[in-house]
Each structure stands twice: as structure tokens, then as C-alpha cells.
């Protein structure tokens, strides 16, 4: 049988140039045919001619497959070219950013004291893009811890960038450091939304913690800025903590109620089964 397969392949492969890749493909196809024949024998086919024909048929339009294989080989350098182009594009972008930075700084359009943000901003934006790409790619595998962490890191970078921009645009305004307090509230808040969207088992605990942390930070910001008196402003985190505990207790009670609720057996005879109304009930 192997010899028959070899003979078939030797002839078939004449349609494409005799490359090293074609030889490897020919050897791999022989293994595929032999394995197909083995499967046929185990399934109970005893006629060797029938096995041979079935195996060859399993290759489909083999001539077309071979031509496609060869085309793919010749197109491969194009793919390599695409890779090279992407790499060159990245290198060009880096050089362009450096050139813009030097040009704007040297000509005095932007002072040296502010233009550094062009470089730092580019690095931060690249970081955000990379982290979000990682988050999306891994999330596709239905695992969410790494994506959530990556997303949080990307948000932190975004806040750092925003802070630096504000610093340069407006000098160092009063309470600018609040950006980092708001950052904690935002990062945790968005992560909490993601926890619910991804059905995290710890979402309730995260909600309680979020309420306490967010309320405490808002209380601090309001207290410092004078928007809210320290007293009775302290009621805000206290109420958030009580509210959080209330949510947790409510969630636990609901969970236990669900657990204890009698299960409706799907194969139980319906109460209306005795009369025809069962069949007309929708």
C-alpha cells in the first residue's frame, strides 16, 4: 500500500516545482495517507483497493491543493515583506516623533521644559495600546484576571499622561494631585464594572470594598478642598461602609434563598396534565 501511495504522490507532485518544502509536504502527505488507510482498516474495510481509493479521495482535489500550496510558498516572501514593512513603520514612527520633538524644541515653538512630554507621551500611549491589546487578546480565552490587571495598568498610564498634560498646560494648579486620588476611584470603578460584566465570583466583595475606598477618597478630597466640612462629612465613608455591608448581607440572603428554594423538577407531571388545557397552555 505504501508503495502505491508513493507512486501516486511521485506523479502528483510533478505539477509544482521540486522545492525542499514540496518534498517535506510530499512526505507529510504520505504519512496522512498511511494513517487514513490505518483508520479504514480498523473501521473494518478489508479490500485494499477500496482503502487505496478512499485514501486518495480523502485528499480531495489534490492538484488544486498542490497549486495552492505552491502559491502560498511564493507568497510567503510577501508576508515577510509585510512584517518588514510593519517593523520599518514602527522605526519610522519612533524617528518621526524624535524629529518632531527636536524640531519643535530647537525652533522654540515649544520650550525644552515642555517638549519632553512629546517623547514621554508617545511612550505612555504605546504602553496603553500594548496593555489594551494584551487585555483583549487574553479576554478572548475567557480568562479575565490578566485582562483586568492590564486594563487597570493602562488606566493608570492614561491618568499619568493626563496629569503631565495638565501640569504643562496649566502649570501646577491647586489640587492637581487629586488626579491620582480620582485615578484610584476610576480604576477601581471601571474594574468593578468589568467584574460584573465578566461575572466574577468576587464582585460583591469588590463592590463593598469599592464603596468604602471611593467614599473615603471623595471625603478626603472634599475635606481638603472645603467642598464638604470634615464634620459631619465623615458620615459619607461611614454610610458607604454601612451601605456596603448592607449590600453584602442582602446578596448573601438572596444567595441562600436561591439555594434553599425548592427545585422544580422538569420531569414532574404538570398539574394541568389531567385535562387538555395542558396542551393548549403556552
Amino acid at each position: 500500500m505504501t508503495e502505491r501511495f508513493k507512486k501516486y504522490l511521485e506523479e502528483a507532485f510533478h505539477v509544482i516545482p521540486p522545492t525542499k518544502a514540496a518534498m517535506d509536504y510530499r512526505k507529510a502527505t504520505l504519512v496522512t495517507l498511511e494513517e487514513y488507510a490505518q483508520d479504514c482498516r480498523i473501521k473494518g474495510v478489508t479490500d485494499e483497493d477500496a482503502i487505496y481509493n478512499l485514501a486518495i479521495e480523502s485528499l480531495g482535489d489534490f492538484k488544486a491543493t498542490l497549486i495552492a500550496f505552491n502559491d502560498d510558498l511564493t507568497n510567503k516572501p510577501k508576508r515577510d515583506l509585510k512584517k518588514t514593512l510593519v517593523k520599518s513603520g514602527i522605526a519610522c514612527a519612533v524617528l518621526a516623533i524624535i524629529a518632531v520633538y527636536l524640531a519643535l524644541s530647537a525652533t522654540g515653538v515649544v520650550s525644552w521644559g515642555a517638549s519632553w512630554l512629546i517623547l514621554v507621551g508617545a511612550i505612555l500611549l504605546t504602553g496603553i495600546a500594548v496593555l489594551e491589546t494584551i487585555a483583549v487578546k487574553i479576554a478572548k480565552r475567557r480568562t479575565f484576571i490578566v485582562p483586568r490587571l492590564a486594563n487597570a495598568c493602562a488606566l493608570i498610564l492614561a491618568f499619568v499622561l493626563a496629569y503631565l498634560l495638565a501640569l504643562i498646560a496649566f502649570g501646577n494648579p491647586r489640587y492637581s494631585y487629586f488626579t491620582f486620588l480620582i485615578m484610584v476611584v476610576s480604576v477601581l470603578g471601571i474594574d468593578l464594572i468589568l467584574a460584573y460584566l465578566t461575572k466574577s465570583k468576587l464582585a460583591i466583595i469588590e463592590t463593598v470594598l469599592y464603596l468604602i475606598i471611593a467614599a473615603a477618597l471623595i471625603y478626603v478630597m472634599c475635606g481638603i478642598s472645603g467642598a464638604l466640612a470634615w464634620h459631619p462629612g465623615w458620615l459619607l465613608p461611614a454610610c458607604a461602609a454601612i451601605g456596603g455591608i448592607g449590600i453584602a448581607v442582602f446578596a448573601l440572603v438572596r444567595k441562600s434563598q436561591k439555594k434553599n428554594a425548592p427545585r422544580v423538577k422538569k420531569n414532574e407531571i404538570a398539574p394541568t396534565a389531567q385535562d387538555d388545557s395542558y396542551y393548549t397552555e403556552w
Binding site: 504519512v31 494513517e35 483508520d39 480498523i42 473501521k43 473494518g44
Partner: peptide, 17 residues
Amino acid sequence: INETLVKVLQSVRKSKH
């Protein structure tokens, strides 16, 4: 068993190769 054997072979071949 013959049919299960074919399924097993189809799986282990990936590793064997």
C-alpha cells in the same frame, strides 16, 4: 472499540508527530 481506537489515534497522532 475499533471506532474509539480510530478517535484515539486521530488525537495521539498530533503528539506523536
